[in-house]
Amino acid sequence: MIQVENVSLKHRSTPILHDISLEIPKGGITALIGPNGAGKSSLLSLIARLQPLQVGKISIEGFPVDTTPNRDLAKIIAILRQDSIVTSRLRVRELVGFGRFPHGRGRLTAEDQAIIDQSLQQFDLTDLADRFIETLSGGQRQRALVAMAFAQGTDYLLLDEPLNNLDMYFARELMRSLRKIADGKGKTVVIVLHDINQAGFYADRIVAMKTGRVVADGAPSELLTPETLHAIFGFEMRVETIDGIPMVVHLR
């Protein structure tokens, strides 16, 4: 379980997060949605201890993120950021292999190799395994980064807008893979999404943020209503149910 208690964050004097408290139980997919600048990425990077905690407490499986050794946390939680830097002259297989670093500090066992192969396969990267990262397209690179986070093999996976640059096919594939590991392996996925319909279809729970506060929280069917959506994004949308799936029509 991820426990966030009374967390606030300021960047210089600009407040980013106001007194956020949130519990994410183990298992399932939680989608974070909200307009730009709502503080979704900041919350995610605080949970993943990429930024120091200023006010409040965050713990994962009972381990406080600010005092638990980083090495131990890396076996529990993996994060994929929006703007991950990728050094050049690095092959896809090597990058995915870095995901195993927390386990063997760089020495790859046969088991590690098997996990790397599996991650490559899962994201359709087997053919690209020996290509240099800088020769890949944005979407392929994004898949390689997701595969690296997968290979880390943690129970908790935080993904900050992983659908960026992905075409419809791979966006669907990624969401299906996430669903599969959440259902089959009991993993916990927290994902920042901008496509509200992806969130509605694949997530078990949606947490909506706006100007540094949690403004709505619940199952997709409760949350995806014209009123709530208007409160979050500030314009009218229609919600239709097709084959039992709530679809938000937000184009007009």
């Binding site: 990077s45 993943a48 201890r49 990429l50 050794p69 980083n70 090495r71 131990d72 946390l73 890396a74 076996k75 993996a78 994060i79 950021r81 991950s84 830097i85 990728v86 050094t87 870095f98 995901g99 670093f101 927390p102 986070a149 880390q152």
Partner: peptide, 13 residues
């Protein structure tokens, strides 16, 4: 070499 965020995520202090 992957940068601060990725390195922290992978357990480097």
């Amino acid at each position: 070499a992957l940068g601060a965020d990725s390195a922290i995520g992978l357990g480097v202090t």
